[in-house]
């Protein structure tokens, strides 16, 4: 059980008959797909692909769980995540003190998911979509409020959700999925 080299021979160009055969073969395959294309095109605005659960889409903060450890900001490879300090009222003592929370700049984010994986309390999580439209670049800086609510999946409103399954004959097939982002 080990890799081994295997010298193979190349099929060579043959006689005129082989050429005619090759041409016919190619034309027949072309016609076969012309008659039955076996498409799996996503007709985008009419349909949208509902991505599976583990998909690394937009990253959302669950503020209640955040313990301000700043591990996410430190591990972010593109420095998209930054910690900000905001005053928080301590419910027990009633005193106001400064606490750190992450905010994100989606101009820089590369969706590597390191921050989600490094978060010790699972305060950060992915939502399974990424095609959110912004009207201008400054909207892509998320403040703490925006960071906590899942972005509106506007494209979802125009079409029906489908998901792709791997199929032996067609490669991928579209099947209707349940509503929702």
């Amino acid at each position: 059980m080990a890799p081994k080299p295997a010298v193979k021979t190349l099929p060579r160009r043959g006689s005129l008959i082989d050429g005619v055969k090759g041409n016919l073969q190619a034309l027949i395959v072309g016609l076969k797909y012309f008659l039955d294309p076996k498409r799996f095109t996503l007709v985008y605005p009419k349909e949208y692909s509902k991505l599976p659960k583990g998909y690394r889409g937009f990253i959302i903060l669950n503020k209640q769980k955040c313990i301000s450890c700043a591990a996410c900001a430190r591990i972010c490879p593109s420095a998209a995540m930054k910690m900000i300090r905001i005053p928080v009222k301590d419910p027990k003592t009633g005193k106001t003190r400064m606490k750190q929370y992450p905010v994100i700049n989606y101009q820089r984010c590369i969706f590597c998911g390191y921050c989600v994986d490094v978060c010790p309390t699972e305060a950060l999580y992915h939502v399974p979509y990424h095609d959110v439209v912004y009207e201008n670049l400054s909207e892509m800086f998320w403040d703490l409020e925006t960071f906590q609510k899942e972005p509106e999946y506007k494209t979802a409103k125009e079409g029906s959700p489908v998901k792709f399954l791997i199929h032996e004959e067609y490669g991928l097939i579209k099947v209707p999925a349940e509503e929702g982002g």
Partner: peptide
């Protein structure tokens, strides 16, 4: 090294 596969080589 534990998998069984060939490295194709053409001359």
């Amino acid at each position: 090294d534990q998998l069984d596969f060939e490295i194709p080589v053409f001359e």
